[in-house]
Amino acid sequence: MMENPFQRLGRFTLEAMQKLGRANFFMAHVLLGSVDLLLRPRLLISQMFFVGVMSVLIVAVSGLFVGMVLGLQGYNVLSDFGAEQTLGVMVAASLVRELGPVVTALLFSGRAGSALTAEIGLMKTTEQLAGMEMMAVDPLRRVVAPRFFAGVASMPLLAALFSMVGVMGGYFVGVGLLGVDDGAFWSQMVAKIDFYDDIVNGVIKSAVFGVVVTWIAVYEGYDAVPTAEGVSRATTRSVVYSAFAVLGWDFVLTAMMFGDH
């Protein structure tokens, strides 16, 4: 029997709420399982290799190019006002406040988040998770918790790397190619970028994004329909939801951090 649009809307809403509730129980369970992780740090380290180390290259290269583009675009606009000297401020502020955390989180969800979803989803499909439960091993503690915390720990480091490489890229283009004064580039940057307002807030942002992206990734994998199609859909959803969540949270966090200035 066909359901009418209202029934469909109702079902959709209820399902979304149910999923949100499940995701919260899931996270509570993972957090409870984190105590085990202290006893077995090796699990965390091997996951940090796959989640963090393997993302270094894409993050560093993207950061370099983003910084170079910022240097180029910023120079074109700022030179109209004779303010090329503030290029360093512009590049560094946009990187540490916004682009570092946000672009890193988007890259991270594409590079690491999708892999986590697919891996956990496939484990579920091939009944490895069920097998663990049969052996009285809690898959949330053994499989999900290390991956989650590896993601949360890696994101701020990756975002900091992105910002640093980006500033270098901006320096290379601005000072190296376009002839902005070397000393002014750095001194204006140091004068205008505040440690607590800019750097610390950027790190908080990237940590929040790390939690959001990894949470979505591991949950979508754990919640995937155990078929080939289900895993592929879960992987897609993981990336799409991560992008939405990161951009939405970015607005909220920016409003909280920089709104009152």
Binding site: A160, V190, D198, I199, V203
Partner: peptide
Amino acid sequence: SLFFLAMQVSNL
């Protein structure tokens, strides 16, 4: 990277 941002880029 964090150290670089703190010392070279910001006014810490």
